[in-house]
Amino acid sequence: MIRTPLVYNPRSGHGRMDPAALLARLPGEVRARLEPVPLELPFDYEPWIRQALAAGGPILVWGGDGTLHHAGAALAGLGLPVPLGAVPGGSGNGLVRGLRTPLDPAGAVLRLLEGRDLAMDLGRLDGAPFLNLCGTGFEAEVALAFDRAQGRGLRTYVRQCVGLWRRHREAGLRWEAERPAPEAPGRLERLRAAWRGPEPELPESAWSLCFANLPQYGSGLWIAPGADPADGLLSWVRLRRPGLFDILAEVPQLFREGGRTPLRQEGRLLRAVVRLDRPCPWHMDGEPAPARDRAEITVEKGAFPMRVTSDCPFR
């Protein structure tokens, strides 16, 4: 019997990945179907994608958003032959939180093996694929600093955020964008439009700017509450720099599902070219990307096969 690969990054999260402990919590017939595979940079996923295909898919990848980003890029490079099943094992777990996958790894494995496949949109930054989001400004500076930091976890992330909050400045923006046509005036569409409010104009500057396929950034931060990974659109989100009062009164709203705050401005687009007034760092799924002052953002509707659980709200 060809076993389904459970690929994991031993360095994800806090570096305490224990596949034996995970497998011990699974029924014997499930353990017999899985092959744990440790994989670190440079992440050669190809042989394990081919094994997953021979086993009938999916490929299970246990790790953080960066590990899953590299798995998604490898799948895209091979023509997306099998679905990706994302098992949470990182510090932020933005992708799996957005898909409502259980945060317990063993529970996630069980639910994903009995789950369904979602034809998820695939975002691209200058042609390079991303699964959850990409962005520039403050969040990209944080991703770069976090990547270089000693240690992982929420405490390290918060420390980097505080330091960059003090010194990061806005970038000016110029746009060429294609936006969605107004929705037909059905009852459901009117309710959605009332919830979202008027579609905002594209911003002329941003302290932090991201393009999101899913609602969560990671660690429970709802960066793009209106994002839907199966609608053929990306959400653009501009975050305003919070003042001291905002950190207490408004930032907590970003960590509440349905929370509203003037710090966050969100709209939708089909594609865009954005020009910045200076080269700035970017990130894809939290992984640092080269600095640039021009970026083309595109989305391929339904292009990426993602294995999800029955709790996933998207179709």
Rank of each mutant, 00 (worst) to 15 (best):
I59R: 03
T309P: 14
P10H: 05
V251Q: 15
R240I: 13
G218K: 07
D44E: 05
W62R: 03
A140M: 02
T261I: 14
M306T: 10
V273M: 13
M17H: 07
L269F: 12
H283W: 07
P105K: 07
P252I: 15
Q51C: 06
P38K: 00
L248F: 14
R187H: 15
Q160V: 01
T156P: 08
A24L: 01
K301W: 12
F138Q: 00
L154G: 04
G267P: 15
P129V: 01
G218D: 04
Q253G: 12
Q160S: 04
R31N: 01
D277P: 14
S205N: 03
R33G: 04
L110R: 06
G232A: 09
L113C: 01
A291V: 09
R256C: 12
L23A: 00
G267F: 15
D147F: 06
V87H: 03
R179H: 04
L154H: 05
R307F: 10
R166S: 01
P225F: 11
L214V: 13
C161F: 02
G77S: 03
D117P: 07
P180K: 03
R275A: 13
A52K: 01
D147N: 07
R148C: 04
G57C: 02
A149C: 08
D104Y: 02
A272P: 14
L110M: 09
A194G: 04
R294E: 13
R152C: 01
Y8G: 13
L118F: 01
E300N: 11
L110D: 03
A181Q: 08
N93S: 02
L173D: 00
S235F: 14
E170H: 02
L125M: 04
E35T: 02
E178R: 09
T156L: 05
Q265N: 15
P198I: 08
E176H: 10
G107M: 02
T101F: 08
C280R: 12
P281K: 12
G85D: 05
L68T: 04
P58F: 09
G226H: 12
D117M: 09
L154A: 06
H283G: 09
I247Y: 11
E296S: 14
L53P: 07
L209G: 05
L234W: 10
A194H: 11
I2D: 10
W207N: 01
M306P: 11
W48A: 06
G90P: 11
P36S: 02
D65W: 00
A21F: 01
R50W: 00
G153Y: 03
P200E: 09
M17F: 05
G64W: 07
E201M: 13
G56T: 02
L26D: 00
